[in-house]
């Protein structure tokens, strides 16, 4: 299974290195969302500073929807999905590979966005010890849930519109928990954030577990 996962993840990351869709299109989009929030909320630093954590994660989730769409669009073109189904790769391995590649891209994106909020919103990233694990756990959760719904909607003609509708309510708990943890890491006492980190880890574990057990079914149904 791990070998299959490494194969799929390697394929996806190579694809990204050559096409550079995430870095040239999704990342600028994410920064654009940050700038748009600044337009909407007045350049008054007070509001932006108080809302930084939430705005950051909303930007991450919107970009994650795009990244998921991209990750599964490459599987649909030219009937790659049928090839994947017939390849004899372990479905759980395919799932882990997709999640790993997606998570790696999202982490790069989050680092960029982190730089963005420091520059644009004047955020103070003092509580790194909490912020970094929060990012890791939240990203894993979003990538796992995204892969589940990504493969479901991949073959549909209306995939662009149905994916956000299905995925965003599912990752809403990540938004709540990651925002609370970030607020604690950015301004409040760090101790408030740890239980939210715990929730993020549970969420990630739940969706990774679901994916490992049901991905063969999803691959069959989609």
């Amino acid at each position: 299974m791990w070998r299959d996962a490494a194969l799929v993840a390697g394929k996806d990351l190579r694809l990204e290195l050559r096409s550079r869709v995430a870095i040239n299109q999704v990342a600028p989009f994410a920064l654009l969302v940050l700038v748009l929030f600044a337009f909407a909320l007045d350049p008054d630093r007070g509001i932006l500073a108080r809302a930084t954590a939430g705005l950051y994660w909303v930007a991450v989730l919107f970009s994650a929807v795009l990244a998921v769409q991209r990750a599964f669009a490459v599987e649909v073109a030219d009937g790659v999905r049928d090839g994947l189904r017939l390849s004899g790769l372990d479905p759980a391995g395919i799932f882990v590979g997709k999640v790993a590649a997606l998570a790696a891209q999202l982490l790069v994106l989050e680092a960029l966005l982190g730089l963005g909020v420091v520059v644009f919103y004047d955020a103070d990233v003092a509580g790194m010890l909490l912020l970094v694990p929060t990012c890791l756990a939240a990203t894993l959760g979003v990538a796992a849930a995204g892969s589940l719904y990504g493969i479901l909607s991949a073959g549909l003609r209306v995939k662009e519109t149905i994916l956000p509708l299905l995925l965003l309510p599912v990752v809403a708990p990540v938004l709540v928990a990651a925002t609370q943890a970030f607020e604690a890491g950015l301004s409040g006492p760090t101790s408030d954030g740890w239980r939210w980190l715990g929730l993020l880890i549970v969420f990630a574990a739940a969706y990774v577990g679901l994916g490992l057990t049901t991905f063969d079914l999803l691959l069959e149904e989609s």
């Binding site: 589940l148 479901l152 299905l166 309510p169 599912v170 809403a172 708990p173 709540v176 928990a177 239980r195 939210w196 929730l199 549970v202 969420f203 739940a206 679901l210 049901t214 079914l217 999803l218 069959e220 149904e221 989609s222």
Partner: peptide, 23 residues
């Protein structure tokens, strides 16, 4: 089949949402 999978996923999602928002 697709709807059945989405329907099945309603349950874990609702449970997770419930705990997240309760806290």
């Amino acid at each position: 089949g697709l709807a059945a999978v989405v329907g099945l996923l309603l349950l874990p999602t609702t449970i997770v949402c419930h705990y997240a928002t309760t806290w």
